[in-house]
Write a protein that binds this DNA or RNA. Structure first.
Lengths: 227, 227
DNA sequence: GCAAAAGTGTTGTGTATACACCCATGT
DNA sequence: ACATGGGTGTATACACAACACTTTTGC
């Protein structure tokens, strides 16, 4: 860090969030349709300017609350994007975060600055403003890499879930199919799942057992790793 | 990203670099002794303000060239630190990078803004200004994690090196000892090493064979992984 | 009783680990 | 000849991958 603090011009700084959601079938990203230039009426990930009295996390939470109606969700810093021309108006840095939410717990609503807030499957993204396509791509890579050595996937599911649902989530994130017996063996022997003893009823087949994520059992676990 | 571009106050942004060096024995970090307040005469990692026409990488290279005499080295973005009070003067964000260099290829020299530029072994760091102790800690974790799935360690060595030297580097980074035969087996079967056919002479024991990193062989290799 | 998904073990294959001696060189 | 680090192979344990049938439930 430089010693002097002469008044160099300073860039604007935004916090932008890649919010992943999973509806039981598809992995989606939350996008917002812009009302104003630049990129008017195009889609972008939700973001906004950092205020001087805010940490990045505070900004991210404010943005997600006001622009999409999301509160208190899992957030992690992804990368900071700083290409000189990434905003056509002036120099704007973007500290990108990624987030995982269970869409059924929230009703996304567009804030003032947006026409609409909507979930888009990763495979059907519209044209995106700024460098947000790249941001999403980096986020997806990170999610893929991360899910195998940290039990973060649970953020995307209901509190109680079946092993088949969990497996399908992993298959969706990793974009590959997984052997059922091997998956169950591995995930159970990590010890992070708690069998609730309950079963999901009302399905038109054998009632599957419901599990929960056991946060305490994970704390301090060094060797969580699937595959 | 927000639609409106009202003139919010903007934070200052610095790029700070954790530069690792390895002298054949010890893993060290390059530090600079400050001339001015705050943290006058304390040590910090080299850094400086981002200029409006610079990318982060450009800034990092400028800083390293002017403050420490280093040029064209391996750089990777680490994390962005934004705690509100991390600089006592005003709001300053730090986009941190980490770098790997072979100290014997460079003569570090203090620039104008520093009393001195000096290598400190990781185990003997002085009291550090700002939040730089945390930054170094994060960088060390990253280096540890990264070295096992990407062949970045070579940046720290001479162009030609012996397997024993390479092993010792890995042991130093990972802070654990490694079985010699297993290490050789694994690193050789990755295929990223090229035996030069030369031997290091003038040592007071059997002349060891010299290897080089084979960049072409690594390109496109998906499965580089040690341990 | 049929359709549909849940649940369950074993075996082979490959990878990781542990381990000890001879070789080449300089002094 | 001796001291120093260089260089090499095998046996065992463990982890991973492949694989098919029975059970439960709703209709």
């Amino acid at each position: 860090m430089s010693n002097d603090l002469h008044n160099y011009p300073t860039p604007s700084v935004t916090v932008d969030c890649v919010v992943f959601g999973y509806d039981g079938t598809t992995l989606s990203v939350l996008l917002i349709q812009r009302k104003e230039a630049p990129f008017e009426s195009m889609w972008t990930i939700p973001g906004g300017f950092l205020w001087m009295e805010e940490t990045f996390e505070t900004t991210a939470n404010r943005i997600l609350a006001t622009k999409a109606g999301l509160q208190g969700i899992f957030l992690e810093q992804l990368y900071t994007f700083g290409a000189i021309e990434r905003d056509p108006r002036k120099r704007v840095l973007s500290v990108a975060y990624f987030a995982l939410v269970n869409p059924s717990n929230y009703q996304v609503v567009a804030g003032d600055a947006a026409h609409e807030a909507k979930w888009f499957p990763l495979s059907e993204l519209p044209a995106l403003g700024f460098d947000h396509q790249e941001v999403i791509q980096v986020a997806q890579q990170r999610l893929k890499a991360k899910v195998i050595y940290q039990p973060i996937g649970f953020e995307l599911l209901d509190e109680q879930f079946t092993l088949t649902e969990l497996q399908h989530l992993y298959e969706t994130i990793l974009e590959q199919s997984i052997d059922k017996r091997n998956f169950r063996k591995k995930i159970l022997e990590t010890g992070v799942l708690k069998n609730t003893g309950l079963k999901r009823t009302g399905v038109k087949n054998r009632a599957p057992e419901l599990y929960e994520f056991n946060k305490e059992a994970y704390q301090g676990k060094v060797n969580f790793s699937l595959f």
